[in-house]
Simulated scan of single mutants.
Amino acid sequence: MSAEFEDIVETFEFLDDWEDRYRHVIDMGKALPVLDDALRVPAVKVDGCASQVWLVPHIEGSGNDAVFTFQGASDAMIVQGLIAILHALFNGQTVGEILKTDAIAAFGRLGLDQHLSAQRSNGLRAMIARINEVAAKAAQS
């Protein structure tokens, strides 16, 4: 796991109250760079999310050692925060590392798996699936 993600885990351990954790997730989302409207196109929209979500991947290199970065945005504050957590988990990792990462288990370390609505959980799985799909395709190039 990335150091940035481990920092989030530590912060969540420190925050006892779920309201504080949700506030922290929302604050992380607000801290993400704004996704340009020109990039909010159907090709990068994630299906399966109740809210609107766009993930714009960038791959540098080829094969398993290709480096994955992405920009993302949502029209829902809590989902924008989930994108920020995914950013901490995956951004700057190689596609090989991404394909070995159990993102659902990582979110479980934050306890989020137990505190998201069914729709949000499905949306999170859809975002993770999109990232894995992009990583798998890049690994084959």
Results as ranks from 00 to 15, higher is better:
98 I>K: 01
55 L>M: 14
89 L>A: 06
129 A>C: 01
52 Q>T: 15
47 D>T: 05
77 M>A: 14
95 V>E: 02
140 Q>F: 00
128 I>E: 04
82 L>W: 02
75 D>K: 10
110 L>Q: 05
1 M>F: 05
56 V>R: 12
24 H>W: 13
13 E>G: 07
95 V>W: 03
111 G>A: 06
90 F>W: 09
58 H>L: 11
11 T>Y: 00
74 S>N: 11
54 W>H: 07
66 A>M: 06
118 A>K: 11
82 L>T: 07
6 E>D: 15
109 R>I: 12
117 S>V: 10
132 N>A: 04
83 I>Q: 05
115 H>L: 07
113 D>P: 07
12 F>V: 01
71 Q>T: 00
70 F>I: 13
135 A>K: 03
44 V>K: 06
79 V>I: 15
77 M>K: 12
60 E>F: 06
12 F>S: 03
98 I>M: 05
95 V>N: 01
11 T>W: 00
35 L>H: 05
19 E>S: 11
130 R>C: 04
65 D>L: 08
63 G>W: 10
91 N>F: 08
44 V>F: 12
60 E>L: 09
32 L>R: 10
136 A>T: 06
101 T>A: 12
15 L>W: 05
125 R>T: 14
39 L>N: 12
104 I>M: 15
16 D>E: 14
104 I>D: 13
113 D>V: 15
32 L>Y: 04
11 T>C: 02
117 S>Q: 08
83 I>N: 04
137 K>Y: 00
9 V>H: 11
86 L>R: 04
2 S>G: 01
114 Q>D: 14
81 G>F: 04
117 S>Y: 06
85 I>L: 05
53 V>N: 07
105 A>G: 08
87 H>K: 13
35 L>G: 04
33 P>E: 10
106 A>P: 00
13 E>C: 00
39 L>R: 14
52 Q>V: 12
124 L>A: 12
4 E>S: 15
111 G>H: 02
57 P>E: 09
39 L>M: 13
20 D>Y: 06
53 V>P: 03
51 S>R: 11
17 D>R: 01
126 A>M: 01
102 D>A: 07
114 Q>G: 00
45 K>M: 12
100 K>C: 08
133 E>T: 12
28 M>R: 11
85 I>N: 05
82 L>N: 04
